[in-house]
């Protein structure tokens, strides 16, 4: 979520994080509906996956589809690495997302217990390095 916010800001998109995280939509991001529906269909292995795949392919092409598939699958591994090892979120991410995690419901995930309350306040960033 932190990198969605930062990369969107970098290209002048004021992305609605709530809709992005909930799947309702992400204004300003091209083909966001097709991307979200595809990610959800893959995650849930739903019966409409073939349709979602073809809809995304029509929108972003073969390479875009492959990149979306690579991302969903990569993050299916990543969440298990993070939740299986109990890592803390990095301090830069902690601060950068401090103003929105509560509203987005992310602080209620059980993995939040792994990171101590550092009392950090939100600040803007301009580089990825500031997050990590």
């Amino acid at each position: 979520m932190a990198l969605l916010r930062a990369s969107s800001q970098a290209v002048g998109i004021d992305v609605g994080l709530s809709g992005a995280v909930s799947g309702d939509g992400a204004a300003g991001i091209e083909n966001s509906v097709e991307l979200l529906r595809f990610a959800e269909a893959v995650q849930q292995r739903s019966t409409d996956l073939d349709d979602r795949r073809e809809a995304l392919r029509a929108a972003v092409g073969d390479l875009g589809l492959i990149e979306a598939a690579a991302t969903v699958s990569g993050f299916n591994g990543l969440v298990r690495v993070a939740d299986g090892t109990g890592i803390q979120i990095d301090e830069g991410v902690d601060a950068y997302t401090a103003d929105v995690r509560g509203d987005l419901g992310i602080d209620r995930y059980s993995g939040a217990a792994n990171t101590p309350d550092r009392g950090l306040e939100h600040y803007e960033i301009t580089t990825v390095k500031e997050l990590f």
């Binding site: 979520m1 992305v15 979200l36 991302t71 993050f75 995930y109 939040a112 990171t115």
Partner: peptide, 22 residues
């Protein structure tokens, strides 16, 4: 092939569906 916001949108939604805090 996808912009970074497009990739990060997919990533954020996937993490949310898995309820991953990290």
């Amino acid at each position: 092939a996808l912009s970074r916001p497009q990739v990060e949108l997919v990533a954020a939604r996937t993490a949310a569906l898995n309820e991953c805090f990290y």
